[in-house]
């Protein structure tokens, strides 16, 4: 697992560039766009992942500068949510096939969506992440169920049976992403609690000072003795 992470840290940019070139060159692009399932379920996520990898190449200074415009990842996650919302409009799929401008804007927007996710996710924290997913995932599930139940085709370029399958996959994917995210949040919560219990100093008694105790005892004895003497006199 660590080796994989190291490889990604070191070669992520290279992977990203290779993926970018492969995704935009016609043979693979046309192959991916020949079917609705490949277009929405493979090409879109691949472009987003490529954007993530490429954002990893940014220098620390550049990240800091971007972060000034992206407090708590709010701007980045808003941008990503908006891109994903537009990407689920069926007309986009049809237009991207016939209009080169739309195809370019679509690809750039999805790449930037991935980069925005990469640059915002950590700083967003659980609350902003939850808000982002709470918007994007239900939208994805609704779009999926609409694709699945629509009596007619929503894309003129793609078949009805494929559209229904894509709809099912979108619904399932949204549920899976929500489950994975929730599992991670709970995992991190319990992970944080465990060391907190172990490290906190156990409530302990201060070391007993025998001399002080002895002194207080003799004092008490003297006090008792004087009160008894007063009572006797």
């Amino acid at each position: 697992m660590n080796a994989l992470k190291c490889a990604f840290d070191r070669y992520g940019t290279v992977f990203g560039l290779v993926a970018l070139v492969a995704l935009v060159t016609p043979p693979l692009r046309h192959a991916l766009e020949a079917q609705m399932s490949m277009h929405m379920l493979v090409q879109f996520p691949a472009l987003i992942l490529t954007g993530m990898l490429l954002a990893g190449a940014l220098s620390t200074k550049a990240r800091e500068q971007i972060a000034q415009w992206n407090a708590y990842g709010i701007a980045g996650l808003t941008f990503a949510a908006l891109v994903l919302a537009l990407a689920m409009i069926p007309r986009l799929l049809d237009l991207a096939l016939v209009d080169a401008h739309v195809e370019i804007v679509k690809s750039v927007a999805l790449l930037l969506c991935g980069s925005a996710l990469h640059l915002s996710w950590r700083s967003a924290g659980v609350i902003v992440q939850g808000f982002f997913l709470g918007n994007v995932l239900p939208m994805m599930a609704i779009a999926g169920s609409l694709y699945e139940t629509a009596p007619a085709r929503v894309c003129n370029s793609y078949r009805l049976d494929e559209q229904q399958w894509v709809g099912q996959c979108l619904t399932i994917a949204s549920a899976c992403i929500a489950a994975v995210w929730l599992a991670r949040v709970f995992w991190n919560m319990t992970d944080k609690q465990r060391p907190a219990v172990a490290v906190a100093p156990a409530p302990s008694h201060p070391p007993i000072n025998r001399e002080a105790v002895e002194e207080r005892r003799s004092e008490a004895v003297r006090e008792v003795a004087t009160t008894e003497a007063r009572a006797a006199s």
Binding site: I89, P90, R91, L95, V154, C155, N156
Partner: peptide, 10 residues
């Protein structure tokens, strides 16, 4: 894309 939010499909 939606012609003033009137349509969703091509």
């Amino acid at each position: 894309l939606t012609l003033d939010f009137n349509v969703w499909t091509a």
